Every structure is written in C-alpha cells, then in structure tokens.
Amino acid sequence: MAESPSGSTPEASLRLGPSARPPEARRGRGATANPTSRYDAAREVFQDGDWEADAPGPLRTQVTRERTARIIARNTSPDIPFDRSVNPYRGCEHGCIYCYARPTHAWLGLSPGLDFESRIVAKPDAARILAREIAAPGYRPATIALGTATDPYQPVEREHRITRAVLEVLREARHPVGITTKSDLVLRDLDILAEMAAENLVLVAVSLPTLDPHLARRLDPRAPRPEKRLSAMRRLSEAGVPVMVNVSPIIPGLTDHEIEAILAGARENGASRIGHALLRLPGEVADLVADWFAEHYPERRARAFALLSQARGGRENDPRFGHRFRGEGAYAEMIGQRVRLAGGRLGFAFGRMALNEAAFRKPGAQLALF
C-alpha cells in the first residue's frame, strides 16, 4: 500500500483492515482495532464467568476469574534486575497502546487489541497462593516484581483488591517487593508501603512517558493524568517510600523531546532513581501502534518507525537480550546519553536499588492458609 508524502495512508486503518473499530465503539480505549488472535483455539483457563458477546456502543470492561496453581513467575533474563514476579491480573484497562504485554492475550484466545484492555482476567487466589509458595521448604527470598506485565493498580483493582492482599502477605513475611505502576491508586496502600519502606523492603516505580495530558489521554487513556502521577511520587516520597521514575517508553519523534522535562518534574516531586526504555514492538504491538499513529499522528508515523528501525538493526523489533529495551546505534546512544546527563545533573541514582532480603520470615501456618 503506497504511503502519502506525510508517511500516512488515507485509510483509517493502516495495517489491521477489517478489525478496525469505529471511534464510537472504542471511546476511552487505546487500541483502534481488535485483530484476531494468532492462535486458532482458545485455552480453557476460566472457572467462572463468561465473556459477553460484542455489542454496539462503547466497550464495557469485563472481568472474569482465573484459578491458578502458581503465582510466582520466574525468569532468567539478563536484561532485568529481578528473577521473579507476580501479576494479579491478565490484560490491563489502562489501554496503553504501546504495552509490550498485549501479545500475551493471544494465549487466552483473545485479541491483543481491544480485548486486552476490556477483557480482564483477575486472579483472586493470588495472595493465598503466594503465601504458600514463599512458605515452601527451600524458598529463598529475593525481590518480587509486582506488575511486570500488567499494572497491579489498574482501575479494576479498586473493586477486586488483589494487589493489596498480595502486599499484606509480603508485609507480614517481610519480603522485598518492587512495584511498577502508572496509577495514583498506589496511594491507597500507603500504610503498607510506608511500613515496608521503614525496613527497606519496597521500591515504587512510576511510569511516565509524557507530561502532555492531551498526548497521555491518547497513549494510555485510562491511566491517571501525568500530574496525578507526579503527585503520587511526591506523596510516596514524603511517606519515606523510595520512588523511581520510569521514562518509558520513549517514542521516537513523539515523546523523545520530553526526556529532560520528565526527569526534572519527577525529581521535583521526590523521585530519586531513573529507569528508561525505548518503545518495543513485539508481536501484534507493531501493527496496533502503526494504526494508532495513522489515526492520531499520521504525519509522525514515518519518522517514528524509521528511527525505531535504526535502533533495532533495521527491524521494527529486536528481541535480543541486551538490545530489546535500549536499542543500538546512533539514535539509541543519543537517548541513553541524554538520560545519563540529565539524570546526573539532577542528582538521580540509576536503576533499581538493593532491597532488604535478610528480614524475611517464612509465613506461619495461619498466613499460609490466607
């Protein structure tokens, strides 16, 4: 399909064709389309609740429950500073168009597009299973990352409170935890977080890819506005909870000019550490992002994808360890240098901090049955 001089196509949908949905059917959502899952058959993972059939009008968020035998996921990636994580939910209502976890919804036979942000799977037994797993003979504590795939404080957490229950188990066991979120709902649990911070058991990372509220409403439509995220940083810091700002993702030609301003704003509001990552486009995310650009910023799409290709060895996505988060080449090196220079000037520390593993105590029999 030929592109116009601006780098966009005249069609509303650049790559996803008939899966694109009209604006009135996806108001308040990030994705423009609901492409078919790449798997032919759905995995049967639900014990109760059924998905409702698609209906005209705005999409409603649907939540179903998953019974799971294990809750701690392990990894051996050299790119990330933790080897275990817990995700209380599958899918994320925040609707961040750039979310690298979108392809995981295909494992459920659902779409990484609109399904990912409107069909959420909750794990109500997460806290009970976590207590059992960390009480197991031979378990050795190390920081658990909470919210690595989907946000543990997405809107459905207000009702389901699974994340809070998980934190209650970790507090009782004095187990270190690193939290990543975009939501000021994290402040609801400030009582637990402040208590854990007093023993160096917690770090909260707040993701902030832009300070522009208009752009944020398009990038992550159901996440709190940038000013609310900054306010959450300040209140966490004032309560003694260490805060990291994640300038992530950095989107070429769209948010990369904001790096220094984001860091300055975060520092003014109490953040003391930095993380950053270049936009990743695994699996279906590439097509979803291309369609999003076609609808919202068609004149910027060509430049964004050209710079990403430059940083990804000529491809849209580079899954190699050591490259997937930061990229390589002149553009990626320039981004890294800007983060280092601005961060150093503002007095930030880089990367995650070491948390206290020595205070851990195995849950007692009563907690293990939580």
Rank of each mutant, 00 (worst) to 15 (best):
L215K: 12
L215Y: 13
A216D: 02
A216C: 06
R217V: 05
R217Y: 12
R218E: 12
L219R: 15
D220P: 08
R222G: 13
A223L: 10
A223G: 12
P224N: 06
P224S: 07
P224L: 03
P226H: 06
P226K: 04
E227I: 08
K228D: 13
K228G: 06
K228M: 14
R229V: 00
R229G: 04
L230V: 07
L230E: 06
S231Q: 10
S231W: 07
A232L: 09
M233S: 13
R234D: 14
R234T: 00
R235C: 01
L236G: 05
L236I: 07
S237I: 14
E238C: 02
E238L: 07
E238R: 11
A239Y: 08
A239L: 06
G240I: 10
G240T: 13
G240D: 08
V241D: 10
V241K: 04
V241S: 12
P242G: 11
V243T: 02
M244R: 14
V245Y: 15
V245I: 14
V245E: 15
V245D: 14
V247C: 10
S248N: 14
P249I: 05
I250E: 15
I250D: 14
I251P: 03
I251E: 03
P252L: 05
G253P: 11
G253H: 10
L254P: 07
T255H: 13
D256P: 13
D256W: 13
D256C: 12
H257A: 13
H257R: 04
H257G: 07
H257D: 10
E258C: 09
E258S: 12
E258A: 09
E258I: 14
I259A: 00
E260L: 00
E260G: 09
E260K: 07
I262M: 03
I262H: 03
I262V: 13
I262F: 01
A266T: 04
A266P: 04
R267F: 14
E268T: 02
E268R: 04
E268I: 01
E268A: 09
N269C: 06
G270D: 10
S272D: 09
S272I: 14
I274A: 08
I274L: 11
G275L: 02
H276D: 12
A277N: 01
A277Q: 01
A277T: 00
L278D: 03
L278S: 07
L279P: 09
L279W: 15
R280D: 02
P282Y: 00
P282N: 06
G283K: 02
G283F: 01
E284W: 02
E284N: 01
E284L: 03
V285A: 00
D287K: 01
D287M: 05
D287C: 02
L288G: 03
V289A: 08
V289M: 11
V289I: 04
